[in-house]
Each structure stands twice: as structure tokens, then as C-alpha cells.
Write a protein that binds this DNA or RNA. Structure first.
Length: 511
RNA sequence: GGGUUGCUAGCUCAGCGGUAGAGCACUCGGCUUUUAACCGAUUGGUCCUGGGUUCGAAUCCCAGGCGACCCA
């Protein structure tokens, strides 16, 4: 017999009581941290296979399953446990007679030990037959069992669960244990990224990994994280985009490349921003931004159909229709619709500023060009209204230093951004391939940076040199994977789709 | 960065100037068809932290910490 349990006088002693059970198990010759368990089935499979088994009937069907004990209902000589595995859960029907008969050789007190030594949270392996109880719950009628892993920490309230948002993110493992829909979100995330890779693989794109540690971060307007290499004695930056290296690969002769990976931007944290997030960038030689529109639609529609089985989705109560083609409108037209101002008609900066201010826009005084004013106007009046998927096309050259000049519209570039539920979801251009133009634009950015603009691009000399070797006409597209996953999983915060989002260290002392 | 708001038992919460509470969980007893099992008993606290006001502070005030929401 196990020694008597210490009383769980306070929460700290819950752990002590469970450690005592670990010790008791060892004394009985049972390993509280087992090595393996032969799994014949998972719970969802059994629930499906025996959906028609009538109440009160046993099936002559042997199974061996394992999982975590989520609920215990213990009677004198009978117990019901709910066992949870990755696929779902199934009830265990544990009666004294069956268990003590089956386990007489190894543990003559097997049922008593089951009652005394198991807790909610423990992992358990069982063998038995399938049975549906009189009350209609599909169960495994257990003949033999083993405790596979003893849990020392109690799980949150079985009814209210874990709702403290900070605690859910800090202890995601607990969140995953008690909130099945969280597991589902991350399963869908994996399916979405797999779907994207499969699609691109079928289109003969290859994925090439480019450096995270860089001596000069480029490819986006963003502040980088700074780190340090000891033996080289130099500062390095974490990448803010994969663009410039992927384009070097196009120069090198790959015609379809992409990378899906982690990007780091030293910016604020919000429900839509995490300092590290996942982007995909793809580049296709001999293609332009029109081709990128097609591939952007295809990637997202394909993911929605494969993961959700539909292109009609709901995001936070709003119906979103992903069926193609999606709306396309130029930035000038979109702004004109909302403000009545056609900024394409202006040639004088001051006149454009006056018109913008008259229209009630703010932050206009700091704009160094008409293109910047147009962008401000867009962000202030149009962006959040783009609920259904919309491609905004033909951006000002001043805010697009890596895009090719528009073939027909002076002052603009061949660029689009995709907006869904008011959020920028993808960004694409016909890539700038003229090395002289590229150098001038990056030099202008470098001047802004020198003047204190922390988000301005810097001049990557080697990238410009690469362009001098010649880059074929190329279409490129970048997409925020986290935002796409938010959309397709109806998640309100980016933290819901990142398993371990960045949080400040907990110094509240409440733990 | 600004505004609003939250932090009390392992979990979910109540208490809002006068002895720190409930449900669940934990521990003990009972129970062979439960489903948030039930019945009975016991137990569990740095009321986020630090100052202040007060005879007296979880409660009021100030500062800080960690979140949430809204705004820029």
C-alpha cells in the first residue's frame, strides 16, 4: 500500500501531494515517467468508427490508447475518466472487477491505486474494449492501465478554463491543454503554410533560405533589431525583409524563388503587430505585377479552399467573399472616391497640401512630396474601409524605392498592395531592374536616414552591384502570413496565431 | 506616446473604509452508469508592488509593474 497522502493544506502542497504520489508509484514498482505506450487508435477515429454503437452495448473490439486525464468522476467501485489526445477525447469506463481481474498479476490493488494515485492532468495509457454506456457516452472499458506521466501542477478550472489573456500567452502549453480551439488554430496555421508551399512547388518555385543576420538591413521601411557578433567584433542586424537577397538569386539565374520565414522589426506591439512575424516573399522572372495579382489571388483562395473548404468566410462577424477576381482600383482613384480630390492633377506641393488640409487630413505638413500626401490621404480615408479583398494599384514612386516606374503613368510605379478587412495583407511590384535608377533611389533614402529617419532604407552596395550584372524583368510579392492566418482562422489578435508571442517579462509578482 | 480599464485562493469571480468570501480544483469519508457527477467534512490568501491618508485600507490617494481595449 502507498503511504498516506500529506494533506493538501494549501496550493503549494498540491504539488507536494503529487510528488508523494510519484514516490508511492515508484515504491509499487511502477514508473511514473514511462517510456512508451503502443497506440492502436486515437479518440477521434474511435468516435467516428463507433458512432452508431447503441447505448449500453459493448463492441468486441480491442483498443490501446493514451492521453491526458481531463476529468475524473470516481465512485466507490466505478470511475469515469475523460482522456484527451491530440484528436479529441474519449471516456474511460473503469470498473473495479474488470481491472482487478485483468491486472491481478502485476498489481492486485490496481483499482484502488487508480483512485488514489491518478490526478487530472496525468498522462495515462489504457487497453480495453469499446463500449457505449447506458447514458450514451462512447467509452473504452478498461482492463489494464498505466500512468505514463505524473503531472505535478494542477490544471485550470475545468468549467471556466483559462481566460486570463496574459497567462494564456505566457503559458501557452496550458492554453493548448485546456482550450481545444487554440490547438485547432495552430493546426490550421500549419495547413495554410503547407498549402502555400505546395502551390508554389507545383508552380516550380523553389524555396531558398537567406540570411537573418545582416550587416546592412534592407528591403523595407522599418527599424531593425541590432545584435553583435563576438569574434567578428561587429554589429549585425536581424533582417527586416528577404527581398534583396531573393532578388540576388534571380540575378544568379533562378527564375522562381521564394522564402517563407521569420522577419524582425523593432516596432510597436499591437493586436496586428508582433516584433517577429512570418512573411513570404516570392519572385518570378519574366513576370510583372499583373502576374503577381494572379498568383496572390491563387495562393489565398487555394489556402482557403484547402483548409476551410470555402471562399466564403467570416471575420469577426463580417462576411468576407474571397471568390475571384478581387476588386482592383488605383490609389489615385480610391483616394478621389473618398476625398473628392484627384491628386494626380497637382504639380505644386503646396497646392496639394492645401487641398489635403482642406479635406480634413492631418499630418500633412511633414509630407515631403505629393506622393507622400497621396499615401497619407489613402491611409487616413481609404485603408480601413477596404473590407472585401481589394488590390490598390499604382503607387507614388516616392514611397516605393524598389519598384519599377509605371510604364504609362509618370511619377507612379507598378505596385499593388492587397487589403482585406482593412489591413495590408500583401505588397507587390514589378521589380526595379535599372541599377542606376536603383542607386539614385537608395541614395535618396540613405540621405533621409542620415537626416534621422529611422525607417528609411539604407544603401546596400552589393545589391546594386548585383543589379549591374543584370536582373531579368521580375515580379515580386510579399505577404504577411500571420495576418492571413488571422483572417482564415477568425482570430482577432496576431497573438492568437503566434504560438509564443513576445511579452514583457512578468514582474507582477502574481505568480 | 495619450485615454479608459483590470490585477483578490491553483482556476473563474464577488467583496469597494470595520474579523478575507463563493463555485470549481485539492485533501478526507461515502457511493458500480457519470457527463461541470452527487452527498458530507476539512483546507487553502504577500487582496500585483512600494509609499501615503485614516483609529482602521483589498477598498481612498500617489508612484511603479504586468495586461486588455480605444486613439495617434
Amino acid at each position: 500500500m502507498p503511504s498516506s497522502q500529506p494533506d493538501a493544506q494549501n496550493p503549494r502542497e498540491i504539488r507536494a501531494a503529487r510528488l508523494q504520489k510519484v514516490s508511492d508509484l515508484k515504491q509499487l514498482g511502477l514508473n511514473p515517467y514511462a517510456y512508451t505506450w503502443d497506440i492502436s487508435h486515437q479518440s477521434a477515429q474511435l468516435q467516428k468508427q463507433f458512432a452508431d454503437l447503441p447505448n449500453g452495448e459493448e463492441a468486441d473490439f480491442k483498443v490501446s490508447i493514451a492521453g491526458r486525464i481531463m476529468v475524473r468522476r470516481v465512485f466507490g467501485k466505478l470511475a469515469f475518466f475523460t482522456l484527451q489526445d491530440e484528436t479529441g477525447s474519449i471516456q474511460l469506463f473503469l470498473d473495479k472487477k474488470t481491472i482487478q481481474a485483468a491486472m491481478a498479476d502485476t498489481d492486485e490493488q490496481a483499482f484502488t491505486h487508480l483512485k488514489q494515485l491518478t490526478d487530472v492532468g496525468d498522462f495515462m495509457g489504457v487497453r480495453g474494449i469499446i463500449k457505449r454506456t447506458d447514458k450514451g457516452e462512447l467509452s473504452v472499458k478498461v482492463s489494464t492501465y498505466a500512468i505514463l506521466t505524473k503531472a505535478l501542477q494542477p490544471l485550470p478550472d475545468k468549467w471556466h478554463g483559462l481566460t486570463d489573456v496574459a497567462k494564456r500567452y505566457r503559458q501557452r502549453y496550458v492554453d493548448l491543454i485546456v482550450n481545444p480551439e487554440v490547438r485547432d488554430t495552430f493546426r490550421k496555421r500549419a495547413q495554410i503554410t503547407a498549402s502555400i508551399r505546395r502551390y508554389l512547388d507545383n508552380q516550380n518555385f523553389i524555396e531558398i533560405e537567406t540570411p537573418v543576420l545582416q550587416s546592412e538591413p534592407g528591403g523595407a521601411d522599418a527599424r531593425p533589431f541590432v545584435t553583435y557578433h563576438n569574434t567578428l567584433d561587429m554589429e549585425l542586424y536581424l533582417r527586416i525583409a528577404t527581398e534583396l537577397h531573393l532578388k540576388r538569386l534571380i540575378v544568379g539565374g533562378f527564375e522562381r524563388v521564394f522564402e517563407m520565414g521569420r522577419i524582425f522589426r523593432n516596432e510597436g506591439i499591437s493586436t496586428r503587430h508582433n516584433p517577429e512575424f512570418t512573411s513570404i516573399e516570392l519572385y518570378q522572372a519574366y513576370a510583372d505585377y499583373h502576374d503577381m495579382i494572379d498568383i496572390t489571388e491563387a495562393l489565398i483562395v487555394n489556402a482557403a479552399e484547402e483548409v476551410l473548404g470555402t471562399t466564403q468566410i467570416t471575420y469577426q462577424g463580417e462576411a468576407i467573399d474571397l471568390s475571384t477576381p478581387w476588386k482592383r482600383i488605383t490609389m489615385h482613384d480610391a483616394v478621389a472616391e473618398k476625398t473628392g480630390i484627384n491628386f494626380a492633377e497637382f504639380t505644386e506641393l503646396d497646392a496639394a497640401k492645401a487641398a489635403a488640409k482642406k479635406a480634413g487630413l492631418h499630418g500633412i505638413d511633414d509630407c515631403p512630396s505629393i506622393g507622400h500626401i497621396l499615401n497619407e490621404a489613402f491611409e487616413q480615408t481609404v485603408e480601413t474601409t477596404l473590407i472585401q479583398p481589394t488590390f490598390i494599384t499604382d503607387y507614388p514612386v516616392e514611397i516605393s524605392p524598389l519598384a519599377k516606374p509605371h510604364r504609362a503613368k509618370p511619377g507612379l510605379v507598378e505596385r499593388f498592395e492587397l487589403f482585406i478587412v482593412g489591413r495590408e495583407t500583401a505588397n507587390s511590384f514589378s521589380e526595379l531592374t535599372d541599377p542606376v535608377d536603383q542607386r539614385q533611389r537608395l541614395e535618396a533614402q540613405a540621405e533621409k536616414k542620415a537626416a534621422g529617419d529611422l525607417e528609411a532604407h539604407s544603401l546596400d552596395e552589393d545589391f546594386v552591384t548585383a543589379l549591374e550584372y543584370g536582373m531579368p524583368p521580375t515580379g515580386g510579392m510579399g505577404m504577411g502570413i500571420d495576418r492571413l492566418v488571422m483572417l482564415l482562422t477568425d482570430s482577432p489578435s496576431i497573438r492568437d496565431v503566434i504560438a509564443f508571442p513576445l511579452l514583457k517579462p512578468d514582474q507582477s509578482g502574481s505568480d
